[in-house]
Structures are given as structure tokens and as C-alpha cells.
Design a protein around this nucleic acid. Structure first.
Length: 269
DNA sequence: ATGGCGTATGGAATACGA
């Protein structure tokens, strides 16, 4: 029986280009399940063989050519794979699986929420409207029956909701990812589903917490102008099973890094 | 100085990320 479970979420920004650091993460962290976003890889080209050889034989992918794409890879058997489309668009932005836990299973949702473009105004920027609509559909779907059972929701949600989820609250209030319209909606999505912010359970609200640093900074670590765009939410049924949730900041400095760092969450029955 | 870079596509220059 699976009494302990480690889940990692990571926006990998091309799974094929970064296969070496995916393998490094699997070897060093040895999670039970790894949820990837922005795989940028059609399903036919997904590096399944290499991941199986690393011990992750159970793989669920929802990829498309060029953009987006999510994948959930597991060393435990997975069941009931679901790929949900949002906003009437065929984008590959979600995959859900059942993972064995404590003699039963938990539902694991893996999301890549639209970034939203540059201008935080849906009248002039359709991408921003798409982002808000996507979050709205998440809210309507991920409530009631869908979240009654033990569930985990991870991914690049592309919103940094709290003051200390960004390097400068004041300077980012008009920057997409931290505008009040987004952060208010984000809280509504989380709250209406009864979701718990697992990362903030272990890091005080007044402490800075980031998962993403721009490629454009000369020295990302020194300037440290980060944002918390990647999240781990758990349903109330799993509230007492969360043991830790932390950012693997080191991985942002690995060879040919993603601009996102992995988030590691541990559960125990 | 929140884009200063990086990726996919396609085979150069553009779209996209956040």
C-alpha cells in the first residue's frame, strides 16, 4: 500500500530539449509522480522510452505541436486518464489521472493556464480574456463532486496571487500575472473548490516565495526578481496528509535550465 | 532595465512566453 507519495510539478519549457535535467531531477528527487507543463512536443515524439528506462513506466501525455502540452509520468500505476479542453479550444493544457494512495487513490490534475499576453485588458488583448475565461471554467468545473474526493491540483497556473509571491507587489500590480482582476479571480477559483494552497502551508505569507525567474535577467539569482506562478493545491480531504511543499530553486541554475523551478510536495497517510 | 533571452517552426523571420 502506498502510504507515502511525492509529487513534483515543473514547467519544463520543452521536454525534448531538457530531457537531461528531467532525468537529473528523477534521479535526485525520486518522486513517485512528475507533472510537466510546456512540453512543446507532439505525443508521437514524446521521450517515453527514456522516462520508462528511468523507472517511470506509467505515462499520460496531452501534447500538441509547438506550444503548450502537459504530461504526467509515474512509477506507480495510473488510471482514469482525462484530458479536458477549455474555452472551446483544442489546446493541450490539462491532464488528470488517478494515483494509488493509502489503499485507495487520489485524483491528480495537471494544468497549464494561459499566460495572458502583455496587456491586462480583455477589450484589447484576447489572450487576457482567454486566461480569465479559462480560470472561470476551472472554477465552475473544480467544485462540488469533482473535489469531494482526495485530490491534488498542480501546475503552471500563471498567477502569483499574494503580495510576497512577487519580487515587488507595487511594481507588478499592472503586470499580467499579478493584476487584481487575476489574483481576485484566482482566489475565487481556489476558494470555491475548497482548495488549500499547500506551498503557503509551509512558507509564511510574509516570506518571499518564487518558482519562476526570467531568462532575461543578467543574474537571476542575485537580482532575484521572481514570481510564484507554479502551485500545489490539495482538496480538504487531503488536508491532513500534506507533509511538505518546497521549491527546488537549485534546478533554476542547472545546465540549460527551464525558467521555472520544480515544486516538490510530499503526502503521507 | 518586466525584458535585456529562449524555444519551436522551418530552413529566415516570426510567434510566444510572463
Amino acid at each position: 500500500m502506498t502510504r507515502r507519495l511525492t509529487v513534483v510539478t515543473w514547467n519544463i519549457n520543452s521536454v525534448r530539449l531538457r530531457l537531461p535535467i528531467v532525468e537529473k531531477l528523477l534521479a535526485e528527487v525520486q518522486p513517485d509522480v512528475l507533472c510537466l507543463q510546456e512540453t512543446k512536443c507532439p505525443d508521437a515524439n514524446f521521450p517515453e522510452k527514456a522516462l520508462r528506462q528511468a523507472g517511470y513506466e506509467h505515462i499520460a501525455i496531452n501534447g500538441q505541436k509547438g506550444y503548450h502540452g502537459v504530461a504526467t509520468i509515474s512509477r506507480l500505476p495510473i488510471n482514469n486518464i482525462e484530458r479536458r479542453a477549455f474555452c472551446g479550444i483544442g489546446d493541450s493544457r490539462h491532464i488528470a489521472v488517478d494515483v494509488p494512495f493509502n489503499g485507495a487513490s487520489l485524483r491528480l490534475h495537471n494544468f497549464y493556464v494561459p499566460a495572458g499576453g502583455d496587456e491586462p485588458n480583455r477589450e484589447i488583448n484576447p489572450k487576457f480574456g482567454h486566461k480569465l475565461d479559462f480560470l472561470g471554467e476551472m472554477k465552475d468545473w473544480l467544485t462540488g463532486e469533482e473535489t469531494r474526493r482526495p485530490s491534488v491540483l498542480v501546475g503552471d497556473l500563471n498567477v502569483a496571487p499574494y503580495e510576497h509571491d512577487v519580487w515587488s507587489h507595487k511594481q507588478l500590480l499592472k503586470v499580467v500575472s499579478h493584476t487584481p482582476v487575476e489574483t481576485d479571480l484566482f482566489e475565487t477559483v481556489r476558494d470555491s473548490g475548497g482548495w488549500i494552497d499547500a506551498m503557503r502551508r509551509f512558507t509564511p505569507m510574509e516570506d518571499k516565495l518564487y518558482t519562476w525567474w526570467s531568462y532575461r535577467a543578467k543574474d537571476w539569482s542575485k537580482t532575484d526578481k521572481g514570481r510564484r506562478l507554479d502551485h500545489v493545491w490539495v482538496s480538504e480531504a487531503l488536508d491532513h496528509n500534506i507533509r511538505s511543499a518546497k521549491v527546488l530553486r537549485d534546478a533554476r541554475g542547472w545546465e540549460k535550465p527551464s525558467d521555472h523551478a520544480p515544486v516538490i510536495a510530499e503526502f503521507e497517510a
